[in-house]
Design a protein around this nucleic acid. Structure first.
Lengths: 246, 246
DNA sequence: CGTATCGTTGACAATCTTCAACTCATGTGG
DNA sequence: CCACATGAGTTGAAGATTGTCAACGATACG
């Protein structure tokens, strides 16, 4: 049953991060002890979602918090004119379902099949109140997420489309590195329009940016969702570029 | 001594926010009890900074956390090519100095004269470990900051310059409303170039956006740093606009 | 094997950046 | 108290990148 597919050993909920006050060389490790994971497992149920399924919608009463076991979800906000803005892609060991004023702050949709732990808010909160260590770990994770979101904003401030796409690829790469999976290849679980909505640009611009990177020999793609960086120095120069001129 | 200038009564450190799991109608209140504030005050020293003074720089060892008493600071990251990106403007009752791997994640500079509480990290951490209530309040504040940062990213995803500026004004307006100060006027403590670096556009574009809003009768400015919104419905339409066409 | 979705490419209009000159505000020193 | 220097803010013109619309090609799944 417990296949290798499940990245986390099935010992219970897992949150990956790092103590913000301790050096860790970019690596993220498991913040919860075996004991904590076991204690938390009791509070949670396991839920599964199909690819494309909406898990909850922005504005709904927030009655549960989730912790991803496997799969990828996107968190997004819908503007008044129905356009979507993706605020984050979430991977195994990430949490979602944190609320604002008792309601979910964004909608969540599975972009691959997803398995997750589901914690009723009231239960979780009682547990938090009793467990200072767990609270501290939640603080670590939140600070980590805050940094991620700041990086997203930093990315969105880039003026050139290619810079944004390159920085996005770097983000995905670092994500894998941080969890110890070292592959030369970058995998894109999401579609072009999702990338566009995350990067604040049209999906056509995303497509063109990819083609430009490929043509210039900076990346090389095996198929539309697997690629690797072939010219690291030029790649890094593009990532660092903040101008609008070529 | 305790002048009206100091927005927070001088009862000690203050963090404003709201319990994410309880409805609060957009209002933020003081998360700390008088007792907690008094206990925290013992751990802190009060520091002052001149307008324009750099408080710390990205990458420095993070040895203290700050809590603003009065004034405004900007948090920013410097790109390899020396260009700046402002990640946040921070106001009284906000915190800064949270680190990543033991080092500050961004630089901080005062944009008005600033007074703040300064907590040595080690002291604060010891206190946190002992006080589950305080930890919970920190969690509330962090979730709140996470939302703010998401809003920033949401703003940066707007394609039109006017939309970004309008949304920025709305942000400042909500900020005041949330802390109960109701003024019809919006005050801009920062300069145009700071706004540009926060909005991811050139300062000229900021200037032009302001002029466009003024010309169209949507805002009216008393001077360069005080304005009010005179045509709310058009204003809201511009904020909601995600397209790039006129 | 067909259909729906995803992805690519092209052309044109439009907005924004850049560079540059100019005005306004502030503050310091003689 | 005024002059001058410095930083902040505005405006103009030209060039470039991206959005939009639209058609076409590729892929995945039933």
């Amino acid at each position: 049953m417990a296949r290798a597919k499940i990245s986390t050993n099935n010992h219970g909920p897992a949150i990956r991060g790092s103590d913000p006050w301790a050096p860790s060389a970019g690596k993220m490790h498991q913040l919860l002890s075996e004991e904590e994971r076991a204690r938390l497992a009791v509070l949670a149920s396991i839920v599964r979602f199909d690819k494309g399924e909406e898990i909850y919608r922005e504005g709904q009463r927030a009655d549960a918090v989730f912790n991803i076991i496997s799969g990828v979800v996107k968190a997004y906000k819908t503007a008044p004119d129905r356009s979507e803005h993706i605020t984050a892609f979430l991977f195994p060991d990430d949490m979602f379902g944190l609320s604002e004023e008792g309601r979910y702050a964004n909608s969540i949709k599975a972009i691959t099949p997803v398995a997750a732990y589901r914690f009723p808010v009231s239960t979780l909160r009682r547990r938090l109140a009793k467990d200072a260590d767990l609270e501290f770990h939640v603080i670590c994770k939140l600070i980590h997420e805050l940094r991620e979101t700041q990086r997203h904003a930093f990315l969105l401030a880039r003026k050139r489309a290619i810079s944004r796409v390159a920085m996005f690829l770097q983000l995905l790469e670092n994500l894998r590195a941080a969890r110890g999976e070292r592959t030369a290849e970058i995998y894109l679980p999401m579609k072009r329009s999702d990338i566009g909505e995350y990067l604040g640009m049209s999906l056509e611009a995303v497509s063109r940016a990819f083609r430009s990177l490929t043509t210039r020999g900076i990346i090389r793609n095996r198929d539309r969702r697997h690629l690797k960086i072939t010219d690291r120095s030029t790649f890094d120069r593009i990532v660092g570029d903040t101008t609008n001129a070529s």
